[in-house]
Design a protein around this nucleic acid. Sequence first.
DNA 1: CGGATCGTACGATAGGCATCGTAGTACGGT
DNA 2: ACCGTACTACGATGCCTATCGTACGATCCG
Lengths: 119, 119
Amino acid sequence: MTTAAPAPSSRALPHPAREEIRLEGVLHALSDPVRLRIVRELAAEDVELTCSQFDLPVTKSTTTHHFRVLRESGVIRQTYEGTAKMNGLRRSDLDDLFPGLLGCLLTAAAHQSLRQGTG
Amino acid sequence: MTTAAPAPSSRALPHPAREEIRLEGVLHALSDPVRLRIVRELAAEDVELTCSQFDLPVTKSTTTHHFRVLRESGVIRQTYEGTAKMNGLRRSDLDDLFPGLLGCLLTAAAHQSLRQGTG
DNA sequence: CGGATCGTACGATAGGCATCGTAGTACGGT
DNA sequence: ACCGTACTACGATGCCTATCGTACGATCCG
């Protein structure tokens, strides 16, 4: 078999179960410009990205903080692969819980960016 | 003519123009449980409500605070009518800026309430 | 005018949080 | 074993905010 995925690596990360994801938490997570940007990039690439692949206007520590908030609110799924930490949107979970919401949010963010040239 | 609306009363309130409404601000406003509840009630009634018609688990001062956050983020429109302060959702502005978002959010909130019996 | 109702302003408080820097851990490669 | 890379943990800092209580302003009714 073509082992494309390099083994999830021992250390695990706590994620909320699908039923534990709260709308308020998701909205709070996405109300920060940096985090909204992360989610938009993640949605655009449609593939798992490492933390360091994002070009964010904050330091590494702050980046770690933002990714944790996104994970703990249930927006993204994080897994280690070697020293890298892969990040992926929890699309199916979110779509199941809040139908259409993620799409609307991404569209809204895109519209706003077009209007204001802010990304 | 049937003057149903009792004159807007002198004191005016500052509202952001439609173009000034920011997605992040809206999300932040709605990420508070009390404010999300206000917006849901407002959407359910589909008519302007006074501040005191809401049964909220906070004091009057805090209620004032939450309504102000909602107004300043562009989610609601507030006008005085006598001593009462009328509150209405800025549906058309929001739908114009962020198509479908308000509906998705309300649906999502409703779904979550059904799941968890939290309202 | 006097009183009642509705909402505001202001100050205080406590907790949350975005940010940073530094020091450290985990892993892979040489 | 050693080094480099990727990310984390921890502590500090300063700001934001949700909450309250009390005192006040605005409006209406009698």
